Amino acid sequence: MVNQSDVEFGVMLSATSNDYGIADADLPGVFRETARTLENNDFDVVVAGDHIAYPDEIPTDYEFSKSGEPPFTSETSVYEVFQVLSHLAAVTDDLALGTNVVAAPYRHPITLTKHVLTLESLSNGRADLGVAPGWLSTEFDALGVPFDERGSRTDEFLEVFSRACSEGKFAYDGRHVSFDEIGFYPAPDRDIPVWIGGHSGATFRRVAEYGTGWSTLWDSPDEVESARERIMNAWTDYNRSGDPEIAVLRPVNVGGDSNHLLSGSPDDIIEDVEAYVDAGVTRIIVDFFTTDVDEQHEQIEAVGDDVIPSF
């Protein structure tokens, strides 16, 4: 049995940006009910993705669907991630509240830092920041942010955020933004976890330079183990102590086809989680094959009853 301290469990609140066929007026209740269900079933964190506005033109190379077509259109309701997480802070007590992941270039670094620090204060220290450069080029166009600058803008945000948390106030002169000395308050009382998303060499460098750990989607234990070797090389280059955290998001299906990872009997899923832990994973984020909210909650309860107690 794996030690409980080695792995956390979370859920992706994907209804914040996917078309679930639920009336907009009912979605806030779904968010609240899901968060309470997670807390009642011993989950550690809820995370949500980040989009601001879906354009009509969406590239058909979405890697997480067989057709390449994303599960949204320009008419899909999309909720601002920090407002959703702040809303959930008021109806939960212990659940960590995370972005998985926020597209750093979408917002000015001062604005994005303020969002995170506000969530941290409103939740009494439960903010959990996942960051990546973003991928939807036409959304960048709509926001007036050059797509080819997304990497350098992500780096600039991470530098500003790190300094804001450690210094409180400072002046900054960067490639994309510059400002005279300003204060970043409320100040956090702890190191806010920072998860870096992506697979590039720059991603693994960011993990080592700024991150608590790495967040990925769908990777197998073997793929995680290979990536962890690259992360550790960068971790050593930056003289980091300890070990990086690693989060993997995958759909779960308790009672489903055991030919897929995290699908099958509870024992099958426990065995898969153990393989992930052996590869270096410290957090499993559960997504779903179904968009039916009741069925999702049944899966949450099944994982809480039959999987989490083994860890």
Rank of each mutant, 00 (worst) to 15 (best):
V2E: 01
Q4G: 05
V7P: 05
F9Q: 05
V11T: 13
Y20P: 11
G21N: 07
I22Q: 04
D26E: 15
D42A: 15
G49E: 02
H51F: 15
H51R: 11
H51Y: 13
Y54N: 11
P55S: 04
P59Q: 05
S65P: 11
K66A: 15
S67I: 09
G68R: 05
G68V: 07
E69S: 09
Q83N: 14
S86R: 12
H87N: 14
L88D: 08
L88Y: 08
A89Q: 14
A90S: 15
T92R: 11
L95H: 11
T99S: 14
T99C: 13
V102E: 03
T111A: 14
T111Q: 12
T111P: 01
H115G: 00
T118S: 15
L122D: 04
S123H: 12
G125Y: 06
G130K: 02
L136W: 06
E139F: 09
E139V: 03
D141I: 06
V145Q: 06
D148F: 08
E149Q: 11
E149L: 02
G151C: 01
S152G: 14
D155G: 04
E156Q: 03
C165H: 01
A171D: 14
S178T: 15
F184E: 05
I196E: 08
G197I: 08
G198I: 07
H199D: 11
A202C: 02
F204H: 15
T212M: 09
W214A: 05
D219N: 13
D219R: 12
R228I: 10
E229L: 10
R230M: 07
I231D: 02
W235G: 01
Y238W: 14
R240S: 06
G242K: 02
G242N: 05
P244W: 02
I246E: 01
V252N: 04
V254S: 04
G255Y: 13
G256C: 07
S258I: 01
S263A: 14
I270L: 07
D272T: 00
E274V: 12
E274F: 00
E274A: 12
V277P: 00
V277N: 00
D278S: 13
G280Q: 00
R283S: 09
I284H: 00
T290K: 03
D292G: 05
Q299V: 06
I300G: 03
E301Q: 14
V303A: 02
G304P: 07
D306K: 10
S310M: 00
